[in-house]
């Protein structure tokens, strides 16, 4: 659906040149929810804004649904933009228009006949669940309601793609969840491709199929969310994942809570994914190799619909037995990290 190749964006300011994107390649499939995560200033907004040419790329190609966006004429670009919806952190609703007329706005731009447009607005307000607020002005809405209007407005011209620039960053956790659920629902209902950027791994975890981690103007890692969560390939990915679990903090002071043992001991971190989270592999290991396992920390979490967890264990026993048991865990398909 979206193919980005060699995308570079340099901002020229009077005092310096800022390379916000450095040779970025990215490909987003039709119908998926693709997340882009990165620290502040990494280039996330620049990347997403290049896709609808709010920012002009310095060079590179951006193909959206077969069209090379940067090479379009002004008029064709206006047409193409009508098929690329966008929602914003600050909602950006017109204060001079009611909720109804805000959603009407993109239809006016596209010269949709009034009667048809009004019909469409009503459907959209139903879809996002704020039909009762149609006659109200945005100033009277909560953040979550404003974002629902923003979503309805972005969907008005039946776009193929929805771009979301930190759409939930100004919302509280509960409202964030309800907006993410709405995005997930429209993704399945309308088979809409969604590209969203965030600095919150929770957002990625809850709704994304795949994720790109962007660090210092470059893509550090791309993959499906589950494999990046269970097996992050870069430090930056690890730090995002750790930011939403307390794992690191606990491992930071395990040496303080551990007793010195006479026998051999070894600390490992076990990751469970999917159905293996339900199997009693650890307990059968203990029985089979006659070792002790001291459970220091454990959590179980859910990435989209898949359960996913970590267990930090101290294995105590004869050195051979401990090594055998680690091999046993590997053999059962668990991800092991010796720490």
């Amino acid at each position: 659906m979206i193919q980005i190749k060699n995308l570079t964006k340099i901002y020229y300011t009077p005092h310096q040149e800022i390379k916000a994107l450095d040779n970025v390649d990215l490909s987003v499939n039709r119908g998926e929810i693709f997340g882009i995560i990165g620290l502040s200033g990494a280039g996330k907004s620049t990347l997403i804004r290049c896709i609808n040419m709010l920012e002009k790329p310095t060079h590179g190609t951006i193909i959206v649904d077969g069209q090379d966006i940067p090479s379009l004429s002004k008029k064709d670009l206006h047409q193409a933009r009508q098929k690329i919806g966008m929602i914003f952190q600050q909602f950006n609703l017109l204060s001079s228009r009611t909720v109804f007329d805000n959603v009407m706005f993109p239809l006016e731009i596209a010269h949709v006949p009034v009667k048809e447009a009004r019909q469409r607005v009503s459907e959209l307000l139903d879809l996002v669940g704020i039909a009762d607020k149609a006659r109200v002005y945005p100033d009277q809405l909560s953040g979550g309601q404003k974002q629902r209007v923003g979503i309805a407005r972005a969907l008005a011209n039946n776009p193929k793609i929805l771009l979301s620039d930190e759409a939930t960053s100004a919302l509280d956790p509960q409202t964030t969840r309800s907006i993410l659920k709405l995005l997930k629902d429209i993704n399945t209902q309308l088979n809409l491709t969604i590209l969203l950027i965030t600095h919150d791994m929770n957002v990625i975890k809850q709704i994304c199929d795949r994720v790109a981690v962007i660090d210092d103007s470059r893509i550090a890692e791309v993959g499906d969310v589950l494999s990046i969560f269970s097996n992050p390939g870069t430090d930056i990915s690890r730090s995002f994942i750790n930011a939403i679990s307390q794992k690191d903090e606990i491992e930071g002071y395990t040496d303080k809570i551990l007793k010195k043992h006479d026998s051999y001991s070894c600390m490992i971190r076990v990751s469970f994914i999917g159905s293996s989270a339900g199997d009693p592999i650890i307990s059968s290991m203990i029985k089979k190799y006659g070792i002790d396992a001291n459970i220091l920390y454990g959590n179980i979490d859910q990435v989209k619909e898949t359960p996913f967890g970590h267990l930090t264990l101290q294995l105590i026993g004869k050195q051979e037995a401990v090594e055998e048991s680690i091999r046993y865990l590997y053999a059962n398909g668990l991800e092991i990290e010796v720490i």
Binding site: L54, Q82, L94, S95, F105
Partner: peptide, 25 residues
């Protein structure tokens, strides 16, 4: 500026932005 960008992202041309965003707002 966000309001103007929102209109641009919907494919508005300059005249539409002037008449539907700038002056009413």
């Amino acid at each position: 500026w966000g309001l103007i960008e929102a209109a641009l992202s919907m494919g508005a041309n300059a005249w539409q932005i002037i008449s539907k965003v700038l002056i009413p707002e």
